[in-house]
Amino acid sequence: MLLIPCPYCGARPQDEFHYRGDATVKRPAPDAGLQALYDFVYTRTNPRGWHLEWWHHYAGCRQWVKVERNTLTHEIRTAVGPAEDTPQLSA
């Protein structure tokens, strides 16, 4: 059970959250074309190591938070709101 430091609620167990993958991809402008949308939806860096990812605190504050987690060790370094940047990985 991961312990996720929700920036709004404090540390909360993983089962209060839902996962939604890579938070470094940004939805492109409406006119950016097929390839850009394709990359947003499909293409993933899938790093072995630090990963910036979306978690939804659905059983808490219902906010989407960006969590910086290591995919090899599961260590969590930071968690911030959608508008903020993390020190190490920028979204």
């Binding site: 059970m1 991961l2 990812e53 090899l72």
Partner: peptide, 13 residues
């Protein structure tokens, strides 16, 4: 388990 991982170790949920 439901999140990206290369750890080859699972968790309890």
């Amino acid at each position: 388990d439901g999140y990206n991982s290369y750890s080859q170790r699972g968790n309890l949920p």
